[in-house]
């Protein structure tokens, strides 16, 4: 579904990513792990088209999308739920969800998608007329995920969905990710919460200083001594 080959990305003069290669197959959950500043968010922003790719290629379903505009990538089914949620605070919960289905095709499925999202997150239903900025952190994350689902993604990228949330809410969010995947959506999950992310994932990639350091099956990575030392404190 998604294939990245030897991608270099710069911020101005500074090279952030070096020869990043990763792939996500249809139906998988793949996690992208690493500490702060390793280049995870830069990677997904390059995938979404917010940052230009200096070298290498990004392919979506076999088609190179390096030069495709960000909003067209969304049309192609590549949807990112960004770090920090980026919901629209003075729009109501309902309006936020509607904006998830702004594009033509998602719009024609707006009613169906709304039902799916509201049954997935009943709390959003009770707050649908409230301004999104008044929601709690966990609810905002649910709204951001719900808004992403409204776009009818084929590949959903979640950038640190657990960031700043209480452990019990994090469990809910991970359950939801599993459920979305069960509905046929391919997932690329960016996380610092390594054990939980790997437990959920088919495969994982570990980034260090702008490169992919390790990759492999979720359970193999969990057992890897290097990972244990770095991220699990074992």
């Amino acid at each position: 579904m998604l294939k990245i080959d030897n991608m270099d990305v710069f911020y101005g003069q500074v090279q952030i990513l070096r020869q990043v290669s990763l792939d996500v197959k249809e139906g998988e959950i793949v996690s992208l792990l690493g500490s702060n500043g390793a280049g995870k968010t830069t990677t997904v922003n390059a995938i979404s088209g917010i940052l230009p790719v200096a070298k290498g290629s990004i392919q979506l379903s076999g088609q190179e999308i390096n030069k495709v505009e960000p909003h067209v990538r969304v049309e192609m089914g590549l949807v990112q739920i960004p770090e920090g949620r980026k919901i629209f605070p003075t729009l109501s919960v309902m309006e936020n969800l509607e904006m998830g289905s702004y594009l033509k095709v998602p719009k024609s499925f707006r009613k169906e998608s709304l039902e799916i999202v509201l049954s997935m997150f009943p709390v959003l239903k009770t707050r649908k007329n409230q301004l999104a900025g008044t929601l709690s952190g966990g609810e905002q994350q649910m709204l951001a995920i719900g808004r992403g689902i409204m776009s009818r993604p084929k590949l959903l990228i979640l950038d640190e969905p657990s960031l700043g949330l209480a452990p019990i809410i994090v469990d809910d969010i991970f359950d939801v990710i599993r459920k979305i995947n069960g509905d046929g959506v391919t997932i690329l999950l960016v996380e610092q919460n390594v054990p939980q992310a790997l437990a959920l994932s088919d495969r994982g990639f570990v980034m260090e200083e702008g490169r992919i350091g390790l990759s492999g099956k979720g359970k193999n990575l969990l057992a890897d001594p290097h990972i244990k030392k770095l991220y699990l404190g074992l």
Binding site: I50, P82, K86, I87, T90, E95, M99, Y102, P106, R147
Partner: peptide, 18 residues
Amino acid sequence: KAIRAASEEPRGALLMGI
């Protein structure tokens, strides 16, 4: 709504295909 969304959170709007 897209105009309001883009004025509040351009990055979020862009990622919704606006």
